[in-house]
C-alpha cells in the first residue's frame, strides 16, 4: 500500500510532504485572490489617482508628458498617426535628467490627483497672460 493512498491525504501527496503541500495550497489561494483584486483595481486606481474623470484620458496623458519632459507645450496626440515617429522622439530635448552610466530622472513625484491642480493652475496662468 503506497503512502499516497492514505485516505486523508490528497492524491500525489505523501505523509512526509503533507504539511508543506497544505501551506503551499494556502499560499496559492492567497496569491490567486490578491491577483484578482489587483487586476481588477489597478487600471481604475491608476486612472483616478492621476485625475480621471475630472481630466479626460487625453488630458491625463498630456499632463504626464509635460511632467516627464518638463515642458508645458507638449501634447498627447490622439489618435496617434499610424506610421508616425515614436512619440518621445519629438519631445526628448526638454527632458531633465542627470545622465551617466546610471541615469537619474529629475522630474518630481506626482501626488494624489495633483495633475488636476497642475492642469487648472496652468489654464489660469494662460488665461491671465491673455488678458
Amino acid at each position: 500500500m503506497s503512502p499516497s493512498s492514505t485516505p486523508s491525504l490528497p492524491l500525489g501527496t505523501s505523509p512526509a510532504f503533507a504539511g508543506m503541500h497544505k501551506w503551499l495550497k494556502r499560499g496559492l489561494i492567497v496569491c490567486l485572490t490578491a491577483l484578482v483584486i489587483e487586476g481588477a483595481f489597478t487600471v481604475p486606481f491608476c486612472f483616478i489617482y492621476y485625475g480621471w474623470p475630472t481630466l479626460s484620458l487625453q488630458d491625463v496623458c498630456s499632463e504626464l508628458m509635460r511632467v516627464r519632459y518638463s515642458d508645458d507645450n507638449v501634447v498627447c496626440q490622439y489618435p496617434y498617426p499610424l506610421f508616425g515617429p515614436a512619440e518621445g522622439e519629438l519631445a526628448k530635448k526638454t527632458a531633465q535628467d542627470r545622465w551617466g552610466v546610471l541615469p537619474r530622472p529629475l522630474y518630481k513625484r506626482i501626488g494624489f490627483r495633483e495633475l488636476v491642480t497642475i492642469h487648472n493652475e496652468r489654464l489660469a496662468r494662460q488665461a491671465a497672460s491673455k488678458t
Binding site: C46, F47, Y50, V60, C61, M65, C76, G84
Partner: peptide
C-alpha cells in the same frame, strides 16, 4: 501608442 496604453502604462 494607443491612448489607453499610454495612459495605463505611464500612470503605472
Amino acid at each position: 501608442h494607443t491612448l489607453v496604453a499610454r495612459v495605463f502604462l505611464t500612470t503605472w
